[in-house]
């Protein structure tokens, strides 16, 4: 389903979206956090795409490992270890593969989501990026190769949007308690851009 080439397209596209929406992410984080999420992710993805330029024949596992370690070392804060762990877990799932089938791809996303949960110890509904990752993994697991990526994007968007009405229980926004309600979670929004980039990459391919 996805090749190294497609994968690289996805990540580069995600990078573009993160840079484009850097200020939006920062503003979301200013509302219920400390206002660095856009800056953090922009710095991390900038470093990631620089590493990708020298990928020369790496497989998907190696690429994900490289991306994960780069995010861990460059992002910092809460989102660094979380995104980083997600990619490191994807690396284990896709180890040695030049391309993966749809079920293998889904396994990778599931591994990523579980990694975020293991690292951050959040649950569904805690108003974090997990509220995008876990439902997406479940959604993809129920679908097959013929999944509509437009629909997937719409679904991810809904999940992201649903964090608006949640009360944060984990992450910095949790300090706000009920006052976190009414704002989208910055990490959920950045995860939406990551997966919107995936969906759009896959659509273009179709």
């Amino acid at each position: 389903m996805i090749s190294v080439e497609q994968f690289l397209k996805w990540i580069r596209f995600a990078h573009e979206k993160i840079q484009q929406h850097k200020n939006e992410l920062t503003e979301l984080d200013q509302a219920i956090g400390d206002g660095d999420h856009g800056v953090n992710l922009a710095r991390g993805f900038e470093a990631v795409v620089q590493k990708l330029d020298a990928h020369e024949g790496k497989d998907l596992g190696a690429l994900c490992q490289e991306i994960g370690m780069t995010l861990i070392a460059k992002v910092g804060g809460a989102s660094g270890p979380l995104y980083g762990t997600a990619f490191v877990r994807m690396a284990t799932a896709w180890k040695g593969k030049q391309s993966v089938t749809y079920p293998e791809f889904v396994q990778g996303i599931e591994a990523g989501a579980n990694g975020i949960q293991a690292r951050g110890k959040a649950g569904l509904g805690d108003k974090t990026m997990l509220d995008v990752w876990l439902p997406l993994a479940d959604y993809l697991a129920r679908e097959t190769e013929t999944v509509s990526w437009k629909e997937v994007e719409r679904f991810v968007y809904q999940q992201m949007k649903s964090t608006e009405s949640m009360e944060a229980k984990k992450g910095r926004a949790a300090f706000l308690g009920a006052r976190s309600i009414g704002h989208r979670d910055p990490g959920a929004v950045s995860s939406y851009y990551l997966f919107a980039a995936l969906c759009q990459t896959m659509e273009m391919k179709e």
Partner: peptide, 11 residues
Amino acid sequence: AGEVFTSPTPD
């Protein structure tokens, strides 16, 4: 020292 207001990284 991490970046401004951002936890330092594990490395």
